[in-house]
Amino acid sequence: MKILAIDTSTYTLSIGLSDGDVILAEQVTNVKKNHSIRVMPAIEALMSEVDMKPGDLNKIVVANGPGSYTGVRIGVTIAKTLAWTLHIPITAVSGLASLAASAPLIEGLVCPMFDARRGQVFTGLYRLSNGLLKSVKEDQNVPVVDWCQELLKIGEPVLFVGQESIMHEQVIAEIMGSAAAFAGKSVPYTRPAALLSLASGMEQDPSQVVPNYARLAEAEANWLKANEKKEKSDE
């Protein structure tokens, strides 16, 4: 069973290849460069490095968001097109889940986090137990302050992971105090091996795989708001 893993949902580019239980290759670059130019050449180079041809692949696993809209779309488009045209199954997993799975083997709550600007984050809550990951609170787009207050109510320590959680550390620590621990730079991004470890998840029809943006397009949100107002004034 040869699997290709792709995550381009943030500016980090993560690609991995596994064969059975062996992680054959991992490639991560953590620079703000154009995914559209780099992803396919990176996949081609990594596969050629381990003497793998497209036809050898048995499965694709892709992070389908949340994250950068364009980044997510590039990864998902490549993954679903490859899976469809190679007639192999695809599993789409949360980019936040794969970041949580990149945490060290602990027992307890893990909170992966991507920055979403203006005090907002893309985040979710996961429980790591016996090396298995379980979703506790679903992925969402939320003000970091609201999110921390919600986590505080659980009354359990939470490990924050991901390089973009670092910029919110102060706010998180102020609200959660000793209930918050930070992996910071030791778990900066999704490790391809962690994404590969989630490949046993539900298989989907490639044509049905879509990004999870966790947020409406701005035009759509504005339109809904305007129509809500209109309905209210019509009443």
């Binding site: 396919m40 364009t70 779309r73």
Partner: peptide, 18 residues
């Protein structure tokens, strides 16, 4: 953003089938 969907899908097909 629209162009990038077609471009990346095209690249995936070209790569898969050489």
């Amino acid at each position: 953003g629209a162009l990038l969907v077609g471009v990346n899908a095209a690249k995936a097909i070209a790569f898969a089938h050489d």
